[in-house]
């Protein structure tokens, strides 16, 4: 086993586990037909999570007329799917605000890329792939798809810039291949290990592993991997990447078998999709306490 694989395993084992509530929410989302009462109970068992969810819900941005005091009431007002997404974001926010120094990335870049990818993946699943059932899983897995970079960022930090650049050039600008060449492992394989170590649902591990190569994903998770693959691509196009590797991943040609395109794709449908993703992302950023646009 390569030196980097050993280091990766050690790093993964040292990562703090997800809270019981956060993990429970990922399982509910992956399960598709979850029970609202179970969701409310799960959030309420985690006082910090429940408190932060209520704080967000009561922010003036939601414009609710009266103060919401319970998670149950929040679910009635905003819907179970919105509350599950919010709870997941809240539960993960500290994990995702890690610095990816090795990618020359800003403190919030992993989080912003995850958030925009989540929103884009959900929209792609609904609008281009006609699968509403998988929409929430697309969102949740989109949010977490790049967690493996927490480890590769450490590896990149140790390498000289020249070394990284030459690996990148030798691999024709494909950053995933460059990571493999440099370390014998890449952020998608590491992401899959993290998902397994956290006991996340299988669909999550599959997306972390195949979000750059959905054609290699097991068939049952392939459409999910396609949605996040494109969600991530659109996110990088909008400038919400993790800097060093932004735009450096090829689009897997398999996506053309999964998405529907109409005659107005180039002039209206695709630009409108990107616009709608951006509007939703800017709103979500505001709700998560950032002003957004200025340095995206």
């Amino acid at each position: 086993m390569s030196r980097y694989k050993v280091k990766a395993i050690k790093h993964i084992k040292s990562m703090p586990p997800l809270s019981r509530a956060t993990l429970g929410i990922t399982r509910m989302i992956a399960d598709e037909n979850y029970n609202i009462a179970d969701l409310v109970r799960l959030i309420e068992t985690d006082i910090t999570l429940a408190g932060r969810c209520l704080q967000s819900i009561n922010s003036p941005l939601y414009g609710l007329k009266s103060r919401v005091e319970t998670i149950n009431r929040a679910v009635v007002l905003l819907g179970a799917r919105n509350i599950a997404a919010m709870a997941l974001q809240t539960g993960l926010s500290t994990v995702f605000k890690m610095n990816l120094e090795g990618y020359d990335s800003d403190q919030e870049d992993l989080w912003r890329n995850g958030l925009r990818t989540a929103i884009a993946s959900r929209k792609i699943m609904i609008e281009l792939m006609d699968d509403k059932k998988l929409a929430d899983t697309a969102y949740a897995t989109g949010l977490m798809h790049d967690i493996g970079k927490v480890v590769t960022a450490e590896f990149l930090r140790e390498k000289s810039k020249q070394f990284v650049e030459s690996a990148y050039i030798e691999n024709e600008g494909n950053f995933l291949a460059a990571e493999d060449a440099l370390f014998g492992i890449n952020h998608t394989v590491i992401g899959e290990h993290i998902a397994k170590n956290w006991h996340l649902p299988e669909s999550f591990a599959a997306v972390m592993r195949y979000h750059h190569t959905p054609s290699e994903a097991p068939e049952e998770y392939r459409s999910l991997a396609v949605s996040v693959h494109l969600g991530d691509t659109f996110s990088m196009m909008a400038g919400t990447g993790t800097y060093l590797d932004s735009m450096d991943y090829p689009v897997d040609p398999i996506v053309d078998h999964y998405i529907k395109r109409d005659a107005a794709w180039n002039t209206i449908t695709f630009p409108k999709l990107l616009l709608d993703i951006d509007k939703e992302y800017q709103d979500a950023l505001q709700l998560s306490g950032e002003s957004g646009g200025s340095d995206v």
Binding site: T233, M247, P250, V251, P253
Partner: peptide, 8 residues
Amino acid sequence: VMDANRTF
């Protein structure tokens, strides 16, 4: 983006 089919 590196997209052979230039869809995006």
